[in-house]
Amino acid sequence: MSTTRKRVYGYLAEFSSASTLYKAAEQIRDAGFQKWDCYSPYPIHGLDGAMGLKRSILPWFVFCGGCAGLATAFALAYVTQVEIYPTIVQAKPANIFTVPAFFPIMFELTILFSGFATLFGLLGLIQLPRLNHPLFASKQFHRATDDGFFIAIEARDPKFSPQGTRDLLENIGGKQIELVEEED
């Protein structure tokens, strides 16, 4: 007898195509579920609406990153060239009027900081990297990165019920419905 305790993660159901996944997603959205997700090998356009997801807030992170980059570059160039170490090179002045010569670096650092904000903002929003996930325990889930379309509804969703959710998934065309468990 195994002594390992297992915790139920939720149901995983396979769908035959992007279209059936899309329609199923609309129904689960309308049934009022919150903790669930659609898995597909490629991004399905329009699925955000079918799942009732809001537009990503990532652009705000990137905007802040860009502003930080611009400010950093300006401060770096201005403070060093005008305040700390004023140098007159090629007759360019060492005062505020020299700012146009700083534009290229201000531009580059804006892009650089925005890029880092995109990367780290994305990783924060999608909560990666992580070493494991309960879904990886499923025997069929590896097909989500190949040619499988899945919906997983988590047990922590308030609307979740062992029988009702299973029936719902069956009714909307889910195949190979599987109860995914994680070791506690």
Binding site: Y39, G121, I126, A152
Partner: peptide, 20 residues
Amino acid sequence: LGWRGGNRQWSHYEMAYLLL
């Protein structure tokens, strides 16, 4: 990175790709 291909990931991912 533990990518699962969920649409809640794809949604942000596509935005990140567009921004980059």
